[in-house]
Amino acid sequence: MTALAILAAAGFGLAILGAAFVALRTRSTPVAVLAAGLVSLFASVVFLILAAPDVAMTEAAIGSGLTTFLFFYVLGRIRRESANDQ
């Protein structure tokens, strides 16, 4: 059980770092936003493994759900206004 938990935590930790790398290095901003949301989602799984279900719920609902949509609302507005400019 503990070995499995450690393995899962290590896997999700690597997945977090990989998604964070994508979020930093990609050229397109929407991909970066989605990757940051993915980081939050994996982090919420790690919280669950660390015996913090309350924090995991909050992170999944707020960190990966609402934050991503806030970014996309602002992105959508900016994209439409730059299209209007031309």
Binding site: D54, A56, M57, T58, A61, I62, G65, L66
Partner: peptide, 9 residues
């Protein structure tokens, strides 16, 4: 697990 903040979200 859960509560006001999660439910509000």
């Amino acid at each position: 697990p859960g509560g006001g903040f999660q439910g509000g979200a």
